[in-house]
Design a protein around this nucleic acid. Sequence first.
DNA 1: CAAACAATTTAGAATTATTCTAAATCTTGA
DNA 2: TCAAGATTTAGAATAATTCTAAATTGTTTG
Lengths: 144, 144
Amino acid sequence: MKPRSPQANGQHLTEQLGATGLRLTPQRQQVYDVLVQKRDHPTAEEVFIRAKKAMPEISHATVYNCLDALVKSGLARQVNVERGATRFCPNMIEHGHFHCSACGTIYDVDLPHELPCVAVPQGFKPQGYDLTIHGICLDCAKKK
Amino acid sequence: MKPRSPQANGQHLTEQLGATGLRLTPQRQQVYDVLVQKRDHPTAEEVFIRAKKAMPEISHATVYNCLDALVKSGLARQVNVERGATRFCPNMIEHGHFHCSACGTIYDVDLPHELPCVAVPQGFKPQGYDLTIHGICLDCAKKK
DNA sequence: CAAACAATTTAGAATTATTCTAAATCTTGA
DNA sequence: TCAAGATTTAGAATAATTCTAAATTGTTTG
């Protein structure tokens, strides 16, 4: 059991969504469950395919809608590391990403305790940041 | 005259491309010029439109090819801050990006002198990183 | 409870972003 | 000059995302 996992229970989802003026629906619960069950940074298309197994009637547009709802409510993050489909991540604990340029896998990585306090220009209001490290992962480094 | 701008002269481009086994062609020069002339992080589509003004016969596929060639040769960076088209940046001096979530503008920002030395897992080979700060830019903060 | 209203979902069309294909063109070296 | 390889081109194909209008669901109010 992963102690760091946010609870996938309705309580938490309802609260977070509600604070953004959104409702918890069976589809949103399902999409969230998909994200939590396999944390491999799936694309919207992959989430769609997985969600359909438990909920065959779910549509493409709904998956996008649900993912957007989760992101807006602070229940998931969008991850953009390269050209192509955006990926999604339900880990809301502060972390960065390692993107393997050989196999494309994305790994969560801890951020340094000393957060990089980047000086943004005067008057700019920073609200969050994304750090992505590009390189070769262990598996690919071995294979070479 | 921007002292920080890399020279857009053929010499430099030829060397950098050559080191990657690629040639400097008029199209690649043109695409590079477009990036340097207006550093507003254009999408491939925007680069295409701008390049066509000086080189009307240039094609879509060529712009993608040229951008990829420049990125591979270390003459430009890809910038992925959100869903949608990838953007391009010819500033190869180490820097991060500020993405205004209100107007979508992307600003280059200096990185802290103390680089965040993130601990990647054992055996992983980091090769570079991207830092994006999301928030509200000065102009949008004023308008509100 | 029933009507009215708002939010959400759905299928599928539409749009946008990117890649692919095959033929034509250009460059380079024998 | 010729062959081989790299590059460009137009346009088709594919992938990713958004939009639309109708149906459904949930909520609120009379």
